[in-house]
């Protein structure tokens, strides 16, 4: 029995080529197939909506995106059908933007409160409550938004309009404050707050404790430590969480349906009772749609799908990166 000399050379990790038994080959094959099928759903959604809506893209071309008219053909044939999603796309973005702008500061303060200000015994409970709120169905947010939030929000709208009416977006052509993008955005802000908060909180909680302690050691206050260490560290988590929230807000259907007045007109006056988003428009028009309009709805669905998918891809990439750094 002799010993080999200790190797001086760097040993690089080997890439193993494993020969496996039949049972394992089958097992791995089945699992792979299952996983592939699951993610193939994304591709199938895209393919089927494109297939069903293709005629619309062919008939209307780019004007599907630039026109705001959504009219079925007249029964007597006097006017042809015309479909365009411009107003709804703008509406989706306006409402989702309002939601995000309102939700982010609150989400940040909830995340900071839970992570750095809340008493320890409360923290666990509060985090569970946050998760519970995240699971409240959107139809219930909708019915609450319609009956409870709207009367309050109309009051706020009036105040905003009274003091800030000289700014174009707060102008109201007709003094009706019901079912406006502002109200829908406020409701959506409440709905997307849990997801933004939970992503942000998770990243904040991974902020390096030694750096926080170092900030304290140099005589910093709690806020000073948060500002110098936690906030910069958690920036990408906040951005990623916000993007996820934006994706949710863009795709929300029922709650928006209930608190937003569907009008096919591009509208930036957020307090006016004019608006809509692609998702709620689909829900509204679906029941009464003929075969051709159904195709238009499929096309609109595809547009919505691609829009939210893009936002979500970006969000996942940002969140994953921030987790990797952390």
């Amino acid at each position: 029995m002799k010993l080999l000399p200790v190797s001086d050379t760097e040993v690089s990790p080997r890439i193993l080529k494993v020969s496996r038994g039949t049972a394992d080959k089958v097992f791995r094959g089945v699992v792979l197939a299952g996983a592939m099928f699951s993610v193939a759903v994304l591709g199938l959604i895209c393919a089927f909506l494109l297939y069903r809506g293709f005629e619309i893209f062919k008939d209307f071309g780019f004007s599907f995106f630039t026109s705001s008219r959504w009219e079925a053909a007249a029964d007597d044939g006097s006017s042809p059908a015309h479909y365009g999603v411009a107003a709804m796309l703008v509406g989706s973005i306006v409402v989702a933007t309002i939601a995000v702008v309102l939700a982010v500061p609150f989400a940040m303060s909830v995340a900071l409160y839970l992570e750095y200000y809340a008493p320890q015994f409360l923290k666990r409970t509060l985090v569970s409550i946050l998760d519970l709120v995240a699971s409240i169905p959107s139809v219930i947010w909708g019915i609450w938004g319609y009956t409870i939030l709207m009367p309050h929000a109309m009051g706020w709208s009036k105040t905003l309009n009274h003091w800030l009416g000289w700014i174009p977006i707060f102008k109201v052509p007709v003094p009706i404050f019901e079912r406006s993008p502002f109200i829908a955005g406020t409701l959506l802000a409440m709905m997307i707050l849990p997801i933004i908060t939970s992503v942000t909180r998770e990243v904040y909680s991974q902020a390096p404790r030694d750096q926080v302690d170092a900030a304290y050691g140099l005589g910093s206050t709690k806020w000073g430590a948060i500002k110098t260490v936690v906030l910069p560290f958690g920036k990408s988590g906040l951005v990623g969480g916000t993007m996820l929230g934006l994706g949710r807000a863009l795709g929300e259907t029922i709650a928006v349906y209930l608190v937003l007045n569907l009008v096919f007109k591009v509208n930036f006056h957020i307090l006016a009772s004019v608006g809509g988003n692609v998702a709620s428009m689909i829900a509204t028009k679906f029941g009464e749609a003929g075969p051709y309009e159904l195709k238009a709805l499929m096309a609109a669905g595809l547009v919505l799908f691609l829009l939210t998918l893009g936002v979500n891809f970006l969000a996942s990439a940002i969140v994953n990166r921030s987790k990797k750094i952390a």
Partner: peptide
Amino acid sequence: VGHIGKGTHTIPIDVT
């Protein structure tokens, strides 16, 4: 017969 190890620490072995 050979070197075993995990990571950077390696040990030579020759045994039957």
